[in-house]
Amino acid sequence: NITNLCPFDEVFNATRFASVYAWNRKRISNCVADYSVLYNFAPFFAFKCYGVSPTKLNDLCFTNVYADSFVIRGNEVSQIAPGQTGNIADYNYKLPDDFTGCVIAWNSNKLDSKVGGNYNYLYRLFRKSNLKPFERDISTEIYQAGNKPCNGVAGFNCYFPLRSYGFRPTYGVGHQPYRVVVLSFELLHAPATVCGPKKST
């Protein structure tokens, strides 16, 4: 009989979020998941679920829940969905086509923008091939755009693969920082350890 609540607040209220190319993952297990707390949290810009209804989450049990978190621009949030393409979905964070879970995003301009620009948040701009679902690539190898080998030196046709967002408070909404948490639900042939409040007695 599990009684402790799942530590969703640790994920959602973290002081610093990860850059999207180096997205953070927390495994959540052996706890009671009260999703209504999240669902009623006012400032969400997006709360979209795939393969599961957000209002039914509290009735369900899962083997594991993974909480992935990172920061992207407002106009990139739409790429955090199954079957998407674009710089983020291709080179930074890719969801599987059969994704079961929820994508939760909110504007973090007050936290993550600075006058003069916040350059701490990076994304991958160049990559030889697209990421596989949930693949994480933190390499900083110089990207070779031409035929000539770069030998690890940036220059003509040789690019550092990461780019900084440089968030400023005055940017338009599409270019403002958004914090994103992706909850993915794993249902294995194993005992369920993460259940909603109704199922955990």
Rank of each mutant, 00 (worst) to 15 (best):
residue 166 G to K: 14
residue 74 G to K: 10
residue 36 S to H: 08
residue 144 Q to F: 05
residue 2 I to Y: 12
residue 126 F to I: 11
residue 174 G to C: 07
residue 135 E to R: 04
residue 130 N to M: 10
residue 29 S to E: 09
residue 8 F to W: 08
residue 120 N to Q: 14
residue 2 I to D: 13
residue 20 V to S: 04
residue 148 K to G: 11
residue 16 R to C: 08
residue 185 F to S: 00
residue 97 D to Y: 07
residue 127 R to G: 06
residue 94 K to Q: 03
residue 166 G to H: 12
residue 101 G to D: 00
residue 104 I to P: 00
residue 182 V to M: 01
residue 24 N to S: 13
residue 184 S to P: 00
residue 180 V to T: 03
residue 78 S to D: 14
residue 169 P to R: 08
residue 31 C to R: 06
residue 101 G to H: 00
residue 3 T to F: 05
residue 59 D to W: 05
residue 160 F to P: 14
residue 181 V to D: 01
residue 103 V to M: 02
residue 200 S to A: 14
residue 201 T to N: 13
residue 48 K to H: 08
residue 14 A to V: 05
residue 48 K to E: 09
residue 179 R to K: 02
residue 120 N to Y: 08
residue 87 N to D: 11
residue 79 Q to H: 04
residue 190 A to E: 14
residue 184 S to Y: 09
residue 188 L to M: 13
residue 114 K to E: 14
residue 70 F to Y: 01
residue 157 N to I: 05
residue 100 T to N: 08
residue 117 G to N: 10
residue 72 I to R: 00
residue 74 G to I: 01
residue 153 V to W: 09
residue 186 E to C: 05
residue 160 F to T: 14
residue 13 N to H: 03
residue 156 F to N: 14
residue 48 K to P: 01
residue 98 D to G: 07
residue 91 Y to K: 06
residue 65 V to M: 13
residue 158 C to Y: 05
residue 20 V to K: 02
residue 51 G to W: 00
residue 161 P to F: 02
residue 58 N to W: 06
residue 107 N to K: 06
residue 48 K to F: 03
residue 133 P to A: 08
residue 188 L to G: 15
residue 199 K to M: 13
residue 15 T to S: 12
residue 132 K to Q: 11
residue 66 Y to V: 10
residue 58 N to Y: 06
residue 24 N to G: 07
residue 30 N to R: 06
residue 98 D to Q: 08
residue 23 W to R: 00
residue 67 A to D: 01
residue 61 C to F: 06
residue 45 F to D: 15
residue 55 T to G: 14
residue 75 N to S: 13
residue 180 V to A: 01
residue 52 V to A: 04
residue 126 F to R: 14
residue 74 G to W: 02
residue 45 F to W: 15
residue 105 A to K: 03
residue 153 V to K: 15
residue 134 F to W: 08
residue 120 N to S: 13
residue 72 I to Q: 01
residue 102 C to R: 00
residue 11 V to F: 05
residue 45 F to H: 15
residue 156 F to V: 14
residue 73 R to E: 10
residue 56 K to S: 12
residue 176 Q to A: 06
residue 171 Y to P: 10
residue 87 N to E: 11
residue 34 D to F: 03
residue 179 R to E: 03
residue 111 L to R: 10
residue 14 A to S: 08
residue 174 G to E: 15
residue 103 V to Q: 00
residue 65 V to Y: 04
residue 17 F to L: 03
residue 21 Y to H: 10
residue 19 S to V: 01
residue 173 V to E: 15
residue 143 Y to T: 09
residue 154 A to V: 11
residue 191 P to W: 05
residue 178 Y to L: 09
residue 103 V to I: 07
residue 147 N to E: 15
residue 81 A to T: 04
residue 70 F to Q: 02
residue 7 P to D: 14
residue 115 V to W: 10
residue 137 D to M: 00
residue 15 T to M: 02
residue 131 L to G: 03
residue 73 R to I: 04
residue 141 E to L: 08
residue 118 N to Y: 06
residue 135 E to F: 03
residue 199 K to C: 13
residue 188 L to D: 15
residue 56 K to L: 09
residue 168 R to C: 08
residue 140 T to Q: 10
residue 154 A to C: 09
residue 2 I to C: 13
residue 71 V to Q: 01
residue 156 F to G: 15
residue 3 T to V: 07
residue 186 E to I: 00
residue 64 N to T: 13
residue 139 S to R: 09
residue 57 L to D: 04
residue 42 A to H: 08
residue 52 V to S: 02
residue 185 F to W: 06
residue 99 F to E: 00
residue 7 P to L: 07
residue 117 G to K: 08
residue 154 A to H: 12
residue 128 K to R: 12
residue 54 P to Y: 12
residue 70 F to A: 02
residue 92 N to Q: 02
residue 103 V to F: 00
residue 66 Y to W: 11
residue 78 S to M: 07
residue 10 E to D: 10
residue 77 V to A: 03
residue 30 N to L: 02
residue 162 L to Q: 03
residue 164 S to N: 12
residue 72 I to W: 00
residue 13 N to P: 00
residue 189 H to T: 12
residue 26 K to T: 15
residue 51 G to A: 04
residue 147 N to Y: 11
residue 56 K to V: 08
residue 200 S to G: 14
residue 10 E to Q: 11
residue 110 K to S: 12
residue 144 Q to I: 06
residue 175 H to I: 08
residue 25 R to G: 03
residue 160 F to L: 12
residue 76 E to T: 01
residue 123 Y to V: 08
residue 106 W to H: 01
residue 41 F to A: 08
residue 11 V to M: 05
residue 139 S to I: 04
residue 170 T to P: 07
residue 132 K to C: 07
residue 27 R to N: 13
residue 127 R to D: 05
residue 32 V to I: 12
residue 6 C to Q: 04
residue 155 G to M: 08
residue 65 V to W: 02
residue 152 G to P: 08
residue 141 E to N: 13
residue 100 T to Y: 11
residue 81 A to I: 02
residue 145 A to E: 13
residue 200 S to D: 13
residue 137 D to T: 02
residue 51 G to M: 01
residue 184 S to F: 08
residue 19 S to H: 06
residue 161 P to K: 02
residue 168 R to K: 14
residue 30 N to M: 02
residue 177 P to R: 01
residue 32 V to C: 10
residue 55 T to E: 15
residue 35 Y to P: 08
residue 141 E to P: 09
residue 54 P to D: 07
residue 70 F to I: 01
residue 3 T to G: 09
residue 12 F to Q: 02
residue 79 Q to Y: 01
residue 152 G to M: 08
residue 22 A to C: 08
residue 172 G to I: 12
residue 67 A to G: 00
residue 182 V to W: 01
residue 149 P to L: 10
residue 51 G to E: 02
residue 178 Y to Q: 04
residue 194 V to N: 11
residue 135 E to I: 03
residue 27 R to Q: 11
residue 3 T to M: 07
residue 67 A to P: 00
residue 91 Y to E: 03
residue 115 V to K: 14
residue 152 G to A: 10
residue 154 A to M: 13
residue 88 I to F: 02
residue 28 I to R: 00
residue 17 F to G: 04
residue 124 R to Q: 04
residue 159 Y to K: 14
residue 6 C to W: 04
residue 131 L to W: 01
residue 103 V to Y: 00
residue 143 Y to I: 12
residue 161 P to R: 02
residue 50 Y to T: 01
residue 66 Y to F: 11
residue 170 T to Y: 10
residue 7 P to K: 12
residue 136 R to A: 06
residue 92 N to Y: 02
residue 94 K to P: 01
residue 148 K to V: 13
